[in-house]
Design a protein around this nucleic acid. Structure first.
Lengths: 245, 245
DNA sequence: TGCAGGCAAATTGTCAACAATTTATGGGTA
DNA sequence: TACCCATAAATTGTTGACAATTTGCCTGCA
């Protein structure tokens, strides 16, 4: 145990740098990112000691992070039993996808009313990045980008509150797909749908964009199989390839 | 200081009862309720010592509660400066109301698809409770009920995730109205609108219900005045008339 | 072998003392 | 009076030790 491979400040080995200590938000961000890129599987036990040594922070910080992650349904906390990466139930999965359809439908409408040509260009750039990551075989990055696409759409609506809500749902979706997603392939957010949505938005065809987004989400949900075994991950390797917040 | 008037277990003075200690969720619930009923004004400083003695818990618990309340935008935390009841900016207020329109619009549609006669009856019961509280002059209870009405509607949609989101927005709304609401009267959620919504739902007229709900929220938002002084509350009295969670 | 009981190790929960920072107070001077 | 600076008080942040609980392991017995 206690592999002192701290991720924090891994580059500034022992210089005179200020060594800004990680906060609970930083730990949360790392865990969230690991969940998003499927390096942390649902059901994985997260001990305080592990995260302390991995991130080089005290128990207090890890403890606070757990509290916040629980609030976001990313971990489950059981008294005297510690933290476990959450395993959404099929019922919760249904609610998450239904919520995403409602929220993204509404956000698309809002975005369409004030969209600028530059925003369309930015979306097309994002599509290009998705393709690049996919052809390069960087699965983790590709998974992250497909999630970010939906957040990009949401940002166009200019509503911070809704954006935060959708963020939570994207993380939940990652857990759900990790649990119940099709194991044969890794493609659940097919790039084609994303491109079609951007095209519809560029043409000013809101209802088409909404329809495509809706069926896009329904399709992913339909591919879920609610009878699969769980996995377990190694913590250190799961957190290792992390970029700074 | 340190008025040892603990709210927790106020009835079981010193009996042999188990004296279940309050958890951070309990403290959160109390603060949220106080915000909801306008006994805690935005800008009020919440010191750890105060809440410790009021609720009879240790600093650890209060600290955890602060963290969760910050996550919900109910308090602001500044390092070394403690917790303050949040004061949403006009921009945030705009986002909150826009979010409520989006979310409640979608939830109403969802609810309409599977609504049962019994649910309508329950809604009408709620309307009656609102009227009773209003005529009885129990303003705190009435304010809470007007908020609960919207949550009742949301519950009909059967989506826990969206219900939680709306809960957060209702609390935010309470802060916003406390800050910028019309000071001349106390009526911002006029009972008439609520009754009209229920009537439309009973008649199976979804779009009417949606329209009324939409304009209902727009009306409240339009009444906001974004140039008012803040208030400050006494903590003990603010938390005193609390019912158990 | 299979299982119940109990001991030991590991993990989590709690608390109090101490450190760091901010806020309040009280002269002293222009 | 108004302002500034130094000191004191109050509040928040952190750490470590200790308590409570769970978990794994090992023995003993049927």
């Amino acid at each position: 145990m206690a592999s002192a491979a701290t991720i924090a400040n891994s580059s500034t080995a022992k210089t005179h740098m200020a060594e800004a200590p990680m906060t609970e938000e930083d730990v949360c961000a790392h865990v969230r990112d690991s969940v998003l890129e499927r390096r942390l599987a649902p059901g994985t036990k997260l001990t305080e000691e592990s995260l302390c040594s991995i991130f080089g922070v005290g128990r207090t910080t890890v403890r606070r992070a757990f509290l916040l992650l629980k609030r976001d349904n990313i971990v489950d906390l059981h008294r005297n039993r510690g933290a476990v990466v959450a395993s959404p139930t099929p019922a919760e999965a249904r609610d998450v996808f239904e919520s995403r359809r409602m929220i993204e439908h509404a956000l698309l409408q809002q975005a369409a009313s004030t969209i600028a040509p530059a925003s369309i260009t930015a979306l097309e750039d994002h599509l290009e990045q998705e393709r690049t990551a996919l052809t390069a075989g960087d699965v983790g990055r590709w998974i992250r980008l497909t999630g970010d696409f939906h957040l990009h759409l949401a940002r166009l609506a200019g509503n911070r509150v809704m954006l935060e809500f959708l963020k939570q749902l994207v993380f939940q979706t990652s857990l759900i797909v990790a649990l119940y997603g099709p194991s044969n392939n890794g493609s659940n957010c097919s790039g084609g749908d994303h491109a079609k949505i951007v095209a519809a938005m560029r043409d000013g065809d809101l209802s088409s964009a909404q329809d495509i987004l809706d069926s896009h989400l329904r399709e992913i949900e339909a591919q879920l199989e609610f009878n699969k075994p769980e996995k377990q991950n190694d913590l250190v390797s799961a957190f290792a390839p992390m970029r700074s917040a």
